[in-house]
């Protein structure tokens, strides 16, 4: 069964058509990477998938269930999809441990002890245990983003959405976040990732999708996309990345 299936998605803000006729299938344990310039619709697409944005038309299936149908409980859908954002968005008034255990306790019915034990296990595994009782603003950007990722995966979501999670970080911090994501891939996490890090895309992606003006213009294996781009648009996008030293 497909973990995620998008059929003919359309999304606009007023007269501004952001996504049109978009189809996408993600199998279980697959990692799909979205690339494309800012404004190409990557972030909007991710927000549509976890129902933070309402789509105009089309259907979204999560594990075969139509989550875009009328009457679906959006809260419970979101609780089974992990989301991580560019700006971390950790809760500043809660400690690292409280940030991670909030949803398990409130949404998934864990007891305080169960949630804490689970969270500490995760923090230990990723070398963040000594930060458990600190507030997010005392952490480096890389640590904050890793905590945000752990917060998103603690309840074993069916799908993890990562929206340019390294765009606000410097190179050293980017590396620690990316190695965490690589480890999640080894665990078999199903992911849709929007990123500008092409080297990283090459490493983790099962397929790379190039978005332009809210449509998938080209898709393929990372190596093929990078070395043998077909469309003129992808060629000039890759050329721009190369000029910027990002390739």
């Amino acid at each position: 069964m497909n973990a995620l299936e998008l059929k003919n998605i359309r999304k606009s803000y007023g007269d501004d058509l952001v996504i049109s006729n978009l189809d996408l299938t993600v199998k279980k344990h697959q990692v799909k990477v979205l690339i494309g310039a800012s404004g190409s619709g990557k972030s909007t697409l991710l927000r549509c998938i976890n129902l933070l944005e309402e789509i105009d038309d089309g259907q979204i299936f999560l594990d075969g269930e139509d989550i875009s149908a009328v009457g679906v409980n959006a809260d419970s859908v979101r609780s089974s999809i992990g989301s991580v954002f560019q700006a971390f968005n950790l809760f500043p008034h809660l400690t690292v441990l409280q940030n991670i255990t909030l949803a398990p306790r409130l949404v998934h019915g864990y007891s305080q002890e169960e949630a804490s034990a689970e969270a500490q296990e995760l923090l230990r595994r990723f070398g963040l245990l000594e930060k458990a009782h600190q507030y997010p603003d005392l952490l480096s950007g890389g640590q904050q983003q890793r905590v945000a990722i752990l917060r998103a995966i603690i309840c074993k979501p069916k799908l993890l959405l990562l929206d340019e999670v390294t765009s606000a970080l410097d190179p050293v911090l980017i590396a620690e976040v990316l190695s965490l994501i690589s480890e999640l891939k080894r665990d078999g996490m199903t992911m849709v990732i929007a990123t500008h890090e092409m080297g990283f895309a090459k490493k983790v992606a099962d397929e790379v999708l190039f978005l332009k003006d809210g449509q998938i213009l080209e898709a393929g294996s990372p190596a093929r996309m990078l070395e043998d781009p077909q469309s003129q648009e992808l060629k000039s996008f890759l050329y721009a990345l190369e000029e910027a030293g990002r390739l």
Partner: peptide
């Protein structure tokens, strides 16, 4: 902050 909380299923 609100969006992040809603994304967690709150």
């Amino acid at each position: 902050q609100r969006m992040a909380a809603r994304a967690l299923g709150l």
